[in-house]
Design a protein around this nucleic acid. Structure first.
Lengths: 239, 239
DNA sequence: TACCCTTCCTGGTATAGACCAGAATTTTCA
DNA sequence: TGAAAATTCTGGTCTATACCAGGAAGGGTA
């Protein structure tokens, strides 16, 4: 086949976007309404939406609730193996970080218990946060900290680095960790807290952390918008 | 709103899939035709396809060209920081690996040259391979090796581990590496070599490798089907 | 037996139109 | 002036239908 119309449409839209947000993208990076675009490119909304979905998959544009389509900002570079705080590396890349604490609680959590090798009834400090880059919500995360490692932790503030807290206030070493990353479709609470439709592409990052003495410290799950980050890991030495 | 019909459809389909491929999924893991499913769930193909796309995003099912929808196998666990060969870790997980060499050439390549700090005209040994797990093509990769590090490399066979070759035949150490991972939409050659539609969700992994003496050795790009793998990294020691 | 061709099945693309629900804006009125 | 209400705009969902193109399978032919 020559090539599907929506494919050529995708290419044309992509080119237009690369033209430094030129012509028909407004100052906020907002694209014209679907109906307008469909008309302009002489096709239906359905077909146009195929092209938009394609570009969304490429991480070039994203939708915000029912407000419209927007050009996606540069991906954030992120090294999940380092324990630099979110605020630090976002700032280091010239972006504006912000963290919101969504909830604090003490309760058991089976996946965390499993990952850390504790009994399923073991209570955890549960911290749930939402994090922004340049005022765009890019991830929600849940952290489950073993209370024995950091008694009284919930009295602290969590707008900043948890690990820094654990290191400086409780002198923990966080030496052993296992990290897993899986692509996912954001759903339920995660999707709605990020203000995206259920099914939006995301990346799930889980960490399990032990200290020097191999005592379990923390388990966490991050749910990122897929287009918001680029993972980068630097390694030295053969294994 | 109560909940979109296609959302409930997604849930019902997901449940049915989790029932150990029960009832209407055949032995090969093939789902019934879209038209059949649409009829069975009393909706249109368009709406049904929304639900299928949702499950595809979750990595539960995938489409094979125009043959139909299939249940996706378990994700392969993969640690990009280790240099265990593909064949080794696929086998270790009880799966069947296979590698096809698609092309061998000697030519310059700007991105590789950039990553390795060489001039853009610098020639590379270029190896392109397609790799299978249980006879499903899950990734295509291109490797650009610096000829000075492994003279005569192209005479070898590449159905197995390149790194093993470099270590054993050329005594290279591959100590310093930078790895980046980005979600992408598979396109062009990558998509067609994997037998999927342009725009299918994928994961792009790039490595830049230097040896003990900080001499550039190799640059490679892998394009994975997003539902085929789960990244897992194990780390020891604080940074 | 080996190959080619036809036919059928399946997903892929596209049209045209309708109504819904949340977000943003404007208007109204206390 | 300020808050509430109505309106408009935008994407989200859905129906019904049509035709296309690649894959698979069956059957016929050399």
């Amino acid at each position: 086949m020559a090539e599907a119309y929506y494919q050529r449409l995708t290419d044309r839209l992509r080119d237009a976007l690369l033209l430094e947000h030129s012509s028909w993208v407004d100052a906020d990076g907002k694209l014209p309404a679907e109906r307008i675009l469909a008309q302009r490119f002489k096709t239906t909304r359905v077909t146009l939406r195929q092209a938009l979905a394609q570009l969304e998959g490429e991480g070039r544009i994203h939708r915000s609730n029912r407000r419209g389509w927007f050009v996606s900002p540069l991906r954030l570079e992120y090294d999940p193996t380092r324990d630099a705080g979110f605020n630090d590396y976002v700032t280091a890349q010239g972006r504006l970080p912000r963290t919101e604490v969504l909830s604090l609680a003490t309760s058991p959590h089976a996946p965390a218990a499993n990952a850390l090798g504790l009994s399923v009834n073991h209570p955890f400090y549960h911290i749930r946060r939402r994090r922004y880059v340049d005022e765009r919500a890019v991830l929600v995360e849940s952290l489950w900290v073993v209370p024995e490692r950091a008694p009284g932790l919930l009295e602290e503030r969590f707008e900043f680095s948890l690990w820094k807290l654990l290191r400086e206030q409780w002198h923990l070493s966080l030496s052993h960790r296992s990290i897993s990353m899986v692509s996912e479709a954001l759903q339920g609470t995660d999707a709605s807290e990020l203000g995206v439709a259920s099914g939006t592409a995301g990346l799930n990052i889980c960490r399990t952390i032990f200290d020097d003495a191999h005592l379990p410290v923390e388990y966490d799950e991050e749910h990122w918008l897929h287009d918001a980050l680029s993972i980068r890991v630097e390694l030295k030495g053969t294994h």
